[in-house]
C-alpha cells in the first residue's frame, strides 16, 4: 500500500502529501488503534470476547434504539427537505436563496448551543409549555423522551440533507421535465417517474449524511434525553470515560463502523449507477 501511495504521489504532485500525512496519522492510524484495542485483551492477545459482549441484550437494545431513532430522523429530514428543494429548483431567484440560507442556518451556530436551546424550549416549564398553558391547552411532555431526541437530531442534521439533495435536484435538466409534461404525465407521475429516480443519488447521499451522525451522536441524546434514553454513542462515551473499558468501547465502535460502511457502500453503489446512466447518449 505504501508503494502505491507514494507512487501516486510522485506521479501527481507534492500537494497531496500534507493530506496523505494527515490521513495516515489522524484517520488510518487511529482506526487501527480502535481495531487493535477492540480485538485484543489487556496483554495484547487476540480475543473476540469484547465483540461477543456487544451481543448482550443491553447493548443490542441500545443499538436497536439508536438505529430506529436515526432512521426516523433521516426519514423526517427527507420529507422536510424534498419539497423544499423542489420549490427552490423552480425559482432560482433571490428569494429562493434566502430560504435556502435559512435552512442552512443551524450550521452557523454551535450545535451544543442549539441543542441546549431546544432543552429550554421543550422543558417542563419551557417555552412550548408556557405557550400552551397561556392558551389554556394541556401541557405536552417532550423533554427526556425519544421524541425530543428525534427533534434535536432533525434540527441539527437537516442541512446535511438539504445540501446534497438541492445539488442533485437542481441539476436535473428542465427539458426532461417539460418532455414528461408534453407526453401527458401529471404532477404526481412526473415526480414519481422522473424527479425521484433522477434525484436518487442526492437522496442517498443526503440520507447517509444524516443517518451516520444521528446513529453515533451522544450529545443530543444526553441533553434532550436526560440520560434516560441511552444510545450507542452514550455507551461508547461511558466505556471510554466512566467505565474505563476501552476494549469494550472499541468493540462497540467497530460494530457501529459496520453500519457506516454498509451505508457508504450503498451510496457508492447508487453513485456508480448514476454515472452509468449519464454515460448513455
Amino acid at each position: 500500500m505504501n508503494e502505491r501511495l507514494s507512487g501516486r504521489l510522485a506521479s501527481h504532485s507534492f500537494l497531496a502529501l500534507p493530506f496523505a500525512l494527515w490521513a495516515a496519522l489522524f484517520i488510518v492510524l487511529p482506526l487501527f488503534f480502535v481495531l487493535w484495542t477492540g480485538l485484543t485483551d489487556g496483554a495484547g492477545h487476540f480475543t473476540l470476547e469484547h465483540l461477543s459482549t456487544v451481543l448482550q441484550i443491553e447493548y443490542l437494545r441500545a443499538l436497536g434504539l439508536s438505529a430506529t431513532l436515526a432512521l426516523l430522523s433521516t426519514f423526517i429530514c427527507l420529507v422536510l427537505a424534498y419539497p423544499l428543494c423542489l420549490i427552490l429548483r423552480e425559482r432560482k431567484e433571490r428569494r429562493g436563496l434566502l430560504v435556502f440560507m435559512l435552512f442552512l442556518l443551524p450550521l452557523w451556530m454551535n450545535s451544543l448551543l442549539t441543542t441546549m436551546a431546544w432543552q429550554t424550549i421543550m422543558e417542563k416549564h419551557g417555552i412550548i409549555n408556557m405557550l400552551l398553558s397561556a392558551l389554556e391547552l394541556p401541557e405536552v411532555h417532550l423533554i427526556n423522551t425519544p421524541a425530543a431526541i428525534v427533534i434535536g437530531m432533525v434540527y441539527n442534521f437537516l442541512p446535511y440533507m438539504v445540501l446534497p439533495l438541492y445539488v442533485s435536484i437542481s441539476r436535473i435538466d428542465e427539458s426532461i421535465i417539460e418532455a414528461a409534461r408534453d407526453l401527458g404525465a401529471n404532477h404526481f407521475q412526473t415526480l414519481r417517474r422522473v424527479l425521484l429516480p433522477l434525484s436518487l443519488p442526492g437522496i442517498v447521499s443526503g440520507s447517509t449524511m444524516v443517518f451516520i451522525p444521528a446513529l453515533t451522536t451522544f450529545v443530543i441524546s444526553a441533553l434532550l434525553g436526560g440520560n434516560k434514553v441511552l444510545l450507542v454513542g452514550n455507551i461508547i462515551e461511558q466505556e471510554f470515560t466512566a467505565a474505563y473499558d476501552w476494549q469494550l468501547g472499541s468493540a462497540l465502535s467497530m460494530v457501529l463502523m459496520v453500519f457506516i460502511i454498509l451505508n457508504i457502500l450503498l451510496e457508492a453503489f447508487t453513485d456508480s449507477g448514476e454515472q452509468g446512466r449519464k454515460g448513455r447518449p
Binding site: E58, R61, K228, L230, I235, E239
Partner: peptide, 14 residues
Amino acid sequence: LDKLYTKIWLQVKV
C-alpha cells in the same frame, strides 16, 4: 465489582 457496577448502571439506563 467496578465492572459489575458499570453493567448494573447500563441495565438501569437501557
